[in-house]
């Protein structure tokens, strides 16, 4: 492969406010191949807005600016709505937190999985059905035929999230962005869904961006981690060396987690330094 999968520099997302323009993402940069990148931060850190900008989903009056914003050699900054539609769902997909809100409640799962194929030109009905059933099996659903005909409310949280992943995978995207894909799931389901995403990433050679507030979880699954604070990446870490984190914010995020060694004792809390917000 010549061009990197994603090549981003100087990405900002700006919203107008009565007090002047507010940058909720500032000077974001990322070059990635078919690897697993984690973006970690607290609520309001700009991690989801970064994902939306990469997917072309920032709505006006929000504005995306970037020195460089390229996906597989395509200049995303120059795309019109039609160009975005050709990419989204086919070459880049996104999984959101809660399947209850991101699946269409009045459409059978099978139809929802087939929709990207329909939009991107797979015409034979039989072929669409076959691929939908295949992808349901690939995401570890034992009974693909039942789920194919089911409505979202008939599925549990874990099954719903698998169905979401199936929808995103059916068009074989190159880049998958997962925004808190397991936060609505309990620990056992969380492990299963993460393993599934990990297996699919490896077997299909996807680029994966995993966005979460859960630093240890991201560290276990990703190769590199970007830590965001108030719209800015404050530290980039090799996931294997989480304990070498230098930035006081990252160190604070690790220190405040409960664990056997701190049992029943007061946990360290973050004291936020205004200097962290400056470049």
């Amino acid at each position: 492969m010549s061009a990197p999968l994603l090549d981003v520099a100087g990405l900002s997302v700006v919203f107008p406010t009565p007090l002047g323009p507010l940058a909720v993402v500032r000077d974001f940069a990322l070059g990635m191949g078919r690897e697993k990148i984690g973006i970690v931060g607290e609520s309001g850190s700009g991690k989801s807005m970064t994902a939306r900008a990469l997917m072309g989903l920032v709505r006006p009056p929000g504005r995306v600016e970037a020195r460089r914003l390229r996906f597989a050699g395509i200049d995303l900054g120059a795309l019109d709505a039609r160009g975005w539609r050709a990419l989204r769902g086919r070459r880049m997909g996104m999984i959101l937190q809660d399947p209850k809100f991101s699946l269409n409640p009045v459409m059978r799962i099978g139809r929802q999985i087939e929709e990207p194929l329909l939009l991107h030109g797979t015409t034979s009905r039989a072929e669409r059905r076959e691929r939908a059933l295949g992808v349901l099996e690939a995401v570890g659903i034992d009974d693909p035929r039942r789920v194919y005909d089911a409505f979202p409310h008939e599925l549990s949280g874990g099954m719903g999230q698998r169905a979401m992943i199936a929808i995103m995978l059916v068009a074989s995207p190159d880049l998958l962005i997962a925004d808190e894909p397991t936060s609505a799931l309990d620990v056992i389901l969380r492990e299963q869904v993460l393993r599934l995403i990990e297996d699919l990433q490896a077997s299909r050679g996807l680029g994966l961006i995993l966005i979460s507030h859960d630093l240890p979880m991201v560290a276990r699954f990703c190769d590199r981690i970007l830590v965001m604070y108030r719209g800015r990446v404050v530290e980039t870490l090799d996931a294997r060396h989480l304990n070498d984190a230098q930035h006081p914010y990252t160190r604070g995020l690790i220190a405040c987690l409960p664990g056997p060694a701190k049992r029943g004792r007061s946990l360290p809390v973050l004291s936020r330094d205004p200097a962290w917000e400056r470049a």
């Binding site: 607290e42 507030h213 859960d214 604070g252 405040c256 409960p258 007061s266 946990l267 809390v269």
Partner: peptide, 13 residues
């Protein structure tokens, strides 16, 4: 968030 969780757990204890 984790840092807020720590504050609330401290409060509960």
């Amino acid at each position: 968030d984790a840092s807020i969780q720590a504050e609330v757990l401290n409060l509960l204890l």
